[in-house]
């Protein structure tokens, strides 16, 4: 998986189209409360960083499974995107082009 247009030292032999993975996550009440406290003094919200990292890893996995199902062995031109779909919930989205390389 790469953000490049190709894979170094490999040749793209087949394009298999766009693949994507996404997950929608809601905020956790306890974590939200802690985040509210942290908002007084500022700084990193470690709970949220971890929450979003986990969610993004899952979206990436889903994209990977989709690519494998198509018979790809690489995903190029990967992009991430985030959108808030409802109050307190966010969608994490990843997409790329599935290819076969040799």
């Amino acid at each position: 998986m790469t953000t490049l247009e190709g894979v170094p030292n490999k040749v793209i032999v087949q394009h298999l189209g766009m693949v994507q993975g996404s997950t929608v996550r809601a905020k956790h009440f306890g974590r939200d409360f802690m985040a509210g406290l942290k908002n007084i003094v500022g700084g990193e919200l470690t709970e949220y960083t971890e929450l979003l990292q986990d969610a993004r890893a899952e979206a990436t996995q889903r994209m990977g499974r989709q690519a494998l199902a198509l018979g790809a062995n690489a995903v190029v031109n990967i992009r991430f995107s985030t959108s808030s779909v409802a109050a307190g919930a966010a969608e994490l989205f990843i997409y790329g082009t599935a290819v076969r390389v040799e």
Partner: peptide, 15 residues
């Protein structure tokens, strides 16, 4: 070799 790397941070403002 090539591999995807992601760095992320959630940062909050103070009062």
């Amino acid at each position: 070799y090539a591999c995807l790397f992601v760095g992320s941070v959630v940062i909050a403002g103070d009062y």
